[in-house]
Amino acid sequence: MTNEVKEIFGGGRGTGGPGGGTSALPAPAALAAKVRTLAPSMTRSMQRVAEAVADDPAGCAALTVTGLAELTGTSEATVVRTARLLGYPGYRDLRLALAGLAAQQQSGRAPAITTDIAVDDPIAEVVAKLAYDEQQTLADTAAGLDTVQLAAAVAALAGARRTDVYGVGASGLVAQDLTQKLLRIGLLAQAHSDPHLAVTNAVQLRAGDVAIAVTHSGSTGDVIEPLRVAFERGATTVAVTGRPDSPVTQYADHILTTSTARESELRPAAMSSRTGQLLVVDCLFVGVAQRTYESAAPALAASYEALAHRHRAVRRAP
Score class of each variant (00 low, 15 high):
Gly87Ser: 09
Tyr166Cys: 10
Thr258Phe: 01
Ile212His: 01
Met42Ala: 08
Ser272Ile: 13
Tyr88Thr: 07
Pro247Ile: 04
Thr78Arg: 00
Thr220Leu: 09
Glu225Ser: 12
Ala198Met: 03
Ala143Glu: 09
Thr237Glu: 05
Ala301Ile: 10
Ala131Glu: 15
Leu138Met: 15
Arg109Ile: 14
Asp120Glu: 15
Leu188Thr: 15
Ala30Met: 06
Ala297Gln: 08
Thr64Tyr: 12
Pro40Asp: 09
Asp55Gly: 13
Ala32Met: 09
Gly287Leu: 07
Val199Thr: 14
Leu307Gln: 11
Arg44Phe: 02
Gln106Asn: 08
Ala207Cys: 07
Ala317Arg: 14
Glu263Met: 02
Pro18Arg: 10
Gly16Trp: 04
Ala124Gln: 09
Val288Gln: 04
Asp164Arg: 13
Ala198Gln: 02
Thr72Gly: 00
Ala158Lys: 05
Arg44Gln: 02
Thr141Gln: 06
Ala191Trp: 03
Gly169Ile: 08
Ser217His: 06
Gln180Pro: 00
Tyr88Glu: 13
Leu227Glu: 05
Ser264Trp: 03
Ala103Gln: 13
Gly90Ser: 15
Asp177Trp: 11
Asn3Gly: 11
Thr236Tyr: 06
Glu232Trp: 10
Arg81Val: 06
Ala269Thr: 14
Gln104His: 12
Leu86Lys: 04
Tyr293Val: 03
Asp140Pro: 03
Gly20Tyr: 09
Ser75His: 07
Asn3Ile: 11
His216Val: 06
Ser219Leu: 05
Glu70Ala: 08
Gly276Glu: 07
Val314Leu: 14
Ala301Arg: 15
Ser45Lys: 04
Asp209Ile: 03
Gly186Asp: 10
Pro298Asn: 12
Ser264Lys: 04
Asp282Pro: 04
Thr2Glu: 13
Leu279Phe: 12
Gly21Cys: 07
Pro28Lys: 00
Ala103Pro: 10
Leu182Cys: 05
Ala124Trp: 05
Glu7Asn: 11
Asp282Phe: 15
Ala153Arg: 01
His311Cys: 06
Ala62Val: 06
Gln149Ile: 02
Arg81Leu: 15
Leu205Cys: 05
Asp140Lys: 01
Thr179Ile: 09
Asp121Arg: 10
Tyr88Ile: 11
Ala103Val: 06
Asp116Val: 08
Arg36Leu: 08
Val53Phe: 12
Leu85Gly: 03
His216Glu: 14
Arg44Val: 05
Tyr132Asn: 08
His309Arg: 12
Pro195Leu: 03
Ala58Glu: 15
Val238Arg: 04
Val281Lys: 04
Gly67Glu: 03
Gly59Met: 13
Ala62Lys: 13
Thr74Lys: 00
Thr236Ala: 12
Gly242Tyr: 01
Glu7Val: 10
Thr275Gly: 03
Arg36Ile: 00
Leu157Glu: 12
Ser272Ala: 13
Arg109Glu: 15
Pro40Lys: 07
His192Gly: 05
Gly186Arg: 03
Ala317Gly: 10
Ala289Glu: 01
Gly108His: 07
Leu205Gly: 05
Gln190Cys: 11
Pro244Ala: 01
Thr15Trp: 08
Gly87His: 07
Asp140Gln: 13
Pro57Ile: 06
Glu134Val: 14
Gly234Cys: 02
Leu96Ile: 13
Gln190Leu: 14
Ala289Tyr: 01
Ala27Tyr: 04
Asp121Ile: 09
Val203Cys: 11
Val314Arg: 09
